[in-house]
Structure formats: structure tokens, C-alpha cells
Design a protein around this nucleic acid. Structure first.
Lengths: 232, 232
DNA sequence: CGTATTCTTGACCCGCTTCAACTCAAGTGG
DNA sequence: CCACTTGAGTTGAAGCGGGTCAAGAATACG
């Protein structure tokens, strides 16, 4: 993220559970997630919540064309995180700076893909398939982001309630599905710790098209590469 | 769409029901929808289909960063349409052309919002609310696009099966919900013809946050404005 | 330690699906 | 002009997947 760094204001530590952005507020600030996990969500009047996307480092949050645009969804820190603030909007970017624009375009197109995948999952699949689908997605994105860790073994900072809110299920039923998946020897998820037992059956159960899978891997790899340049 | 016009190859007539882009194929061509309706969809091995987005004129379809990228979703013409073909990719755009890049960024961010809205709807709402939500969205987008027509009266080229595939319901149950909505005096939808009977109750039933509604209106208006420049 | 989340499990219930039959409109060709 | 076809809409009956409610167990945390 070399190019966007020009617009940087400050780094900030944000604790788990804190609302980075709230729906209904005007978005004056644009954030980049530097460290940790967060998620974007939509809220309904009756209190129901839909998790729209889980956010890993490198993502840009709250970017809009106009600074006084009102946010229609929120962002909450899932773990303790570090975020960078920027003062930036679309006109700034494109008048001055191609590289940044291209990065934003790439990030947006990745998020759109992920949104489409989850929409397809929630709209078409059974409860068990949806849970499998989500965990597979997070496993792959996380693995590509931090390739150093042990195979088929991963810490996911999620409660079963988060999984429920992301898949359109109740946490009670998520629990049953996780238990089933364990009994069937496909995956285990306990104490925020995911272990893939049978990758092939997981991919099949999650009804993930080979091309979709490839695109997840591809986009995550590219994302990591891209972020490497951030260090220098 | 003045700036993107440089990359234009040809206009093409496409009949209703034709697949503009198929999942699994490499995407050599980028299209702009000029006239008519289309929709983007994901397909599962067992034949289930999720409609991801309904596409109105002005949208860019099949745009990717690499020309040999494989498509993970398809596009089908809903009515007879006219599309323009372009030979273009991300590197082209940004190395040469800011204005086009900005348009693409804007279109992508609009599509992401719509995807998030539908995801929230499918994940959280009841069958009746989902149907109301979808029809309200299409009503507003269509109305903003073609503002000339009669109030609260609109032609939507959808079957109940399309509504079902977009909302994650069966067409049978969509039928029952439409019937209910009619009896309750909220809206009528028959013979591809939508009539809003009680806008206020519709907005409330669809659980559309005022800010979301505002953003739909805002983005559609802006879209129309933007597209106006296409003519000159 | 005690307290608060989170997880787990069972019993019951309801919204939506499934299956199936029938209606209705719009062609199409003899 | 009517018989046949085809796709969409309509309605009912029965079953099931997932929700709801509730109570208890496990784990994290101060």
C-alpha cells in the first residue's frame, strides 16, 4: 500500500468489540485494517444482524465518493486490531493518483466476489453446507494471508453466533451443524480453533465450484503479494 | 459513458434468455448493457440457481483485471437487449485513462452495495419481507432510470421463478406471498406488471432503513445523471 | 474463586418446501 | 377455426428443516 500512504493520518489501536463505523453516521474517516480481524454488518430495526463480510488486514473500510455520504452498514472489530486512518475520497484519488485508484478497484472487485459467493451460499444451500462454505472460505483466505502456520489448523476468532449471523442461521442450529460436521469427520471447530479433517469432502459439501475456489486462492495470493510492498 | 467509448468494438442485439456470459468460461469480452434488462447468477452443480443482481442499462459486465480470468458467475438477458462489446482490462484503463477508472470504481461500489442489501435481505428477512424488499428495490432503480412513466406503476420483466431465485424461495411460495401482499393492499404483481398500492407500508414491511433507501435513490439518480452524458 | 459469556442438548413448533393437480394465456400448425 | 402444446401462475395437502424456548455444562475472566 505504498501509494495510499500519502493520505495517512494516524494509526490507532482498537479493541475487540468496538464499533469502527456505525450505520447511520456520516463517514468522515476512511480506515485501512492493519492488524487483526473485523467484520461488516447490516442491522435491522428489530435487532437482527447480517454479517456481510469478514475483514482481514489490507482492506479499506468506509471509503466513499462523498465525505458526507451516510453509511448503510457498520464495521466492528472482531479481535484487538490496529487501523490506519486516511482522509481520502474518490475525487482525490483519481485526480492525482492512478496506482491508488487501481488498488481500490481491485479491493472492491474482490469484495464484490466474496459478497456474491456468500449470497449464493445463503440463498441456495442447506444449513450444513452454509456453515461448511463459510469456514472453508475463511480458512482459505486466512491461510493465504498468513501462510506460515501449520497445515489444516487455524485460529478463527469467531463465536457460533458470528457464524450464525453470517449464514442466516441461529447460533443454536450452527452448533448442531458443527457437531454433525465433526461426527462426519469433515472438520472440527471448538474454542475458536478450526481443524480441517477431510479437505476434499469439505470442498464437495460446501458446493464450491472449482473455479470459485481457484478465484479465492488467486485473489488471496495476489492480496498477500500486494501487501508485501507495504513493508519497505 | 464518453470515456469508455474509446474501447468500444461493436453493438449487438441479444434476445431474451440468451447467456451473455457463462460461468466457467474465460472472459475475453467486456460488455456494457445499452438497452433492456439482464441478470447475473451463480449456478450450483445440482442445478440450483441464485440470482445475484438484476442489471439495468449502464452496467458493465464481465470486466476483470486479467483477460484470461475464469468467470465464476453468468449473465443472462432477461428481455431483448442491446449490448456494446469492449476490449478492455484494468491495466489498460488505469495506465491511460482516469475518467474511465473512476466510472468503473463507481459502478463497482454501487453493485457491492446492492449485493450487501440483498444478502442482508436473504439472510435476515421472512419470505414476505424478502419479496417486498426485492420488488421495492427494482421499483426504485427502474423508476430512477426511466423517470417519465406513470406513478406507482411499472413493467418488470420477471417471472415468479426469477423472484424466487433472487430471494432464495421457491416460485410456489413466491406466488403465495404475492397473493398475500395483494390481499393486504400493499402491492400487486401480475402479468409482469407491478403496481404499488401502499408505498409507506411497503417500505416498512421491506424493513428498508431510511438511509439505505436514500442510498438507492441517490445512486440511481447519480447513475442517470452520469448516463445522460452518454448521449451527447 | 465467582460471574459472565459461550456452548450444548432436548422438545416442540412453524415457515417454507415438496409434490401434484389444475387453470390460464399465448402460440402453432392442421 | 379449432386441437394441441408450452410456459407461467394458482392452490391444496403433507412433510421437514430450521427456529424457538429453556435448562444445563463448559470455558474464559476478573
Amino acid at each position: 500500500m505504498r501509494s495510499i500512504a500519502k493520505y495517512k493520518l494516524a494509526d490507532r489501536r482498537v479493541e475487540a468489540g468496538v464499533q469502527l463505523l456505525r450505520p447511520g453516521e456520516p463517514s468522515h474517516e476512511t480506515y485501512e485494517l492493519i492488524e487483526g480481524w473485523a467484520f461488516q454488518y447490516a442491522l435491522f430495526p428489530d435487532g437482527r444482524r447480517q454479517i456481510l463480510n469478514f475483514v482481514l488486514p489490507g482492506a479499506i473500510l468506509g471509503f466513499h465518493r462523498d465525505n458526507d455520504e451516510v453509511l448503510t452498514y457498520g464495521v466492528e472489530a472482531l479481535t484487538n486490531t490496529v487501523v490506519a486512518s486516511y482522509r481520502i475520497n474518490a475525487s482525490d484519488v483519481f485526480e492525482r493518483d492512478l496506482e491508488t485508484g487501481m488498488q481500490l478497484l481491485w479491493l472492491l472487485s474482490r469484495d464484490l466476489r466474496l459478497a456474491f459467493d456468500r449470497l449464493a451460499s445463503v440463498g441456495c444451500l442447506s444449513a450444513q453446507e452454509r456453515v461448511a462454505h463459510l469456514l472453508l472460505e475463511l480458512f482459505i483466505r486466512s491461510r493465504m494471508r498468513w501462510p506460515g502456520h501449520q497445515i489444516e489448523h487455524l485460529n478463527l476468532p469467531l463465536t457460533q453466533e458470528h457464524i450464525g449471523d453470517a449464514t442466516g442461521l441461529t447460533s443454536v442450529h450452527v452448533n448442531r451443524m458443527l457437531r454433525d460436521l465433526g461426527k462426519r469427520g469433515i472438520l472440527e471447530f471448538q474454542y475458536r480453533h478450526l481443524r480441517i479433517l477431510d479437505p476434499d469432502r469439505l470442498v464437495e459439501l460446501a458446493a464450491v465450484d472449482p473455479y470459485v475456489l481457484q478465484s479465492w486462492i488467486g485473489l488471496s495470493v495476489t492480496s498477500a503479494d500486494r501487501l508485501e510492498t507495504e513493508v519497505d
